[in-house]
Computed example of a mutant assay.
Amino acid sequence: MKLLGKYVDKGMQGTVTLMPEESEDMWHAYNLISEGDSVRSTTIRKVQNETATGSSTSSRVRTTLTIAVEGIDFDTQACVLRLKGRNIEENQYVKMGAYHTLDLELNRKFELRKPEWDTIALERIEMACDPSQSADVAAVVMQEGLAHVCLITASMTLVRSKIEVSIPRKRKGSVQQHEKGLAKFYEQVMQSILRHVNFDVVKCVLIASPGFVRDQFYEYMFQQAIKMDYKLLLDNKSKFMLVHASSGFKHSLKEVLQEPAVVAKMSDTKAAGEVKALEQFYMMLQCEPAKAFYGKKHILRAAESQAIETLLISDNLFRCQDVNLRKEYVNLVESVRDAGGEVKIFSSMHISGEQLAQLTGIAALLRFPMPELEDSDDEDDENGAVGGDHNDSDSD
């Protein structure tokens, strides 16, 4: 993302002009733009023209529109962001108040104005415009006949390619068809890696599978690399890492990213930091449950006592349409930081973010035990409220 202009005054009013340069930037734009914001960008509009004889012709013209955003649609596969809203500035082709849909595209700048900017939105801009925040981990999760080639960025787990090949079974006295099928499958996976993995950016390529599939594929790939002189693979051989996974499906990435060897290799990536924080939370929940809580009610009470050491919060919560609720979460993040705590904002498009969403989207590791928070659940139960250990009913 390129920052072309930024003016935000002390009252947190102002505009920011940005240009998305890669698909990841569309995800950042989706997190930045909320209903009620105004967005200015160029667009194509169909215009009806009436001639002197009464006949009409239509033409497509490029014009610049400013709309008050009422609806946001994000296509994660195509990485296209569509904003629907009413025109709020005079335009020769579009009446004031008329509805229009703006498509935000790569390499097309847009200007964003918010009723009030907050620290989370400004941080998102900083992160999006930092060139080091790129897809620095790739992963291939595979089993015989099935493979997913994924890119793990700071914000998303993107499935770039799904490969399915029918492999004949081994038959008594003949394994030729089976081996041919395997070779065809391995070839397609290798070509997919060459096509989708940018080795200039990627620091680590994980190859994960049950059994010996990963070893056989690795051997095949580098035999072919020598035979066909694939310099790209040979020069980056040290970046490949073989790890165990229970299957070739995307959800197996969760366990792959928790492997100690993988965490060590990816220690300088944000994705690993989130996975590690979530793993620590689960461990604390088992070993010292009075120091690990999730759910809005518990977290707010812990923050009041300045007890939060690490706050885990989903970016989903900052996309809520209720302005006051968003402010509540922003204030929570700021209070935890002011008290010397660490805040990890999880992406809902990342495997770790999906896990956090199952825990209400908000969790915390505490500096000291607060058993009174557990006791408050028991009191709620006695009063007939819906409650449970480490959970509450008013969380989002």
Score class of each variant (00 low, 15 high):
residue 182 L to F: 03
residue 182 L to R: 03
residue 182 L to Q: 08
residue 182 L to Y: 06
residue 182 L to D: 03
residue 182 L to S: 05
residue 182 L to P: 02
residue 183 A to S: 12
residue 183 A to C: 09
residue 184 K to V: 14
residue 184 K to H: 13
residue 184 K to E: 14
residue 184 K to A: 15
residue 184 K to I: 14
residue 186 Y to T: 12
residue 186 Y to A: 11
residue 186 Y to M: 08
residue 187 E to G: 09
residue 187 E to V: 07
residue 187 E to R: 12
residue 187 E to I: 06
residue 187 E to H: 11
residue 188 Q to M: 11
residue 188 Q to Y: 06
residue 189 V to Y: 01
residue 189 V to F: 02
residue 191 Q to A: 14
residue 191 Q to T: 11
residue 192 S to D: 07
residue 192 S to G: 01
residue 192 S to F: 03
residue 193 I to F: 01
residue 193 I to W: 00
residue 194 L to C: 04
residue 194 L to G: 02
residue 194 L to V: 04
residue 194 L to F: 02
residue 194 L to K: 04
residue 195 R to S: 08
residue 195 R to T: 12
residue 196 H to V: 11
residue 196 H to R: 04
residue 197 V to W: 05
residue 198 N to D: 09
residue 198 N to S: 05
residue 199 F to I: 09
residue 199 F to Q: 03
residue 200 D to P: 06
residue 201 V to C: 13
residue 201 V to R: 10
residue 201 V to P: 08
residue 201 V to D: 11
residue 201 V to S: 13
residue 202 V to T: 06
residue 202 V to C: 06
residue 202 V to K: 00
residue 202 V to Y: 00
residue 203 K to Y: 01
residue 204 C to H: 11
residue 204 C to V: 12
residue 205 V to E: 03
residue 205 V to L: 05
residue 206 L to C: 05
residue 206 L to N: 03
residue 206 L to W: 10
residue 206 L to F: 11
residue 206 L to E: 07
residue 206 L to S: 04
residue 207 I to D: 02
residue 207 I to F: 05
residue 208 A to T: 13
residue 208 A to H: 11
residue 208 A to S: 14
residue 209 S to W: 03
residue 209 S to I: 12
residue 210 P to H: 04
residue 211 G to T: 00
residue 211 G to Q: 00
residue 211 G to K: 00
residue 212 F to Y: 02
residue 213 V to N: 08
residue 213 V to E: 12
residue 213 V to I: 14
residue 214 R to Y: 02
residue 214 R to E: 05
residue 214 R to I: 04
residue 214 R to N: 06
residue 215 D to L: 08
residue 215 D to S: 10
residue 215 D to T: 13
residue 215 D to R: 09
residue 216 Q to V: 14
residue 217 F to E: 05
residue 218 Y to E: 11
residue 218 Y to K: 05
residue 219 E to C: 12
residue 219 E to Q: 14
residue 219 E to I: 10
residue 220 Y to T: 08
residue 220 Y to W: 12
residue 220 Y to P: 06
residue 220 Y to H: 13
residue 221 M to Q: 09
residue 221 M to N: 06
residue 222 F to M: 03
residue 222 F to H: 04
residue 223 Q to H: 15
residue 223 Q to D: 15
residue 224 Q to E: 15
residue 224 Q to K: 15
residue 224 Q to F: 10
residue 225 A to W: 06
residue 225 A to M: 07
residue 226 I to W: 11
residue 226 I to V: 15
residue 227 K to Q: 15
residue 227 K to H: 15
residue 227 K to C: 13
residue 227 K to G: 12
residue 228 M to A: 15
residue 229 D to W: 07
residue 229 D to E: 15
residue 229 D to I: 08
residue 229 D to F: 09
residue 230 Y to F: 09
residue 231 K to E: 10
residue 231 K to W: 07
residue 231 K to Y: 08
residue 231 K to V: 14
residue 232 L to N: 11
residue 232 L to G: 06
residue 233 L to H: 06
residue 233 L to G: 04
residue 233 L to S: 09
residue 234 L to P: 00
residue 234 L to K: 02
residue 235 D to R: 14
residue 235 D to A: 12
residue 236 N to Q: 01
residue 236 N to V: 07
residue 236 N to P: 01
residue 237 K to D: 01
residue 238 S to E: 10
residue 238 S to C: 01
residue 240 F to H: 02
residue 240 F to C: 02
residue 241 M to S: 04
residue 242 L to R: 07
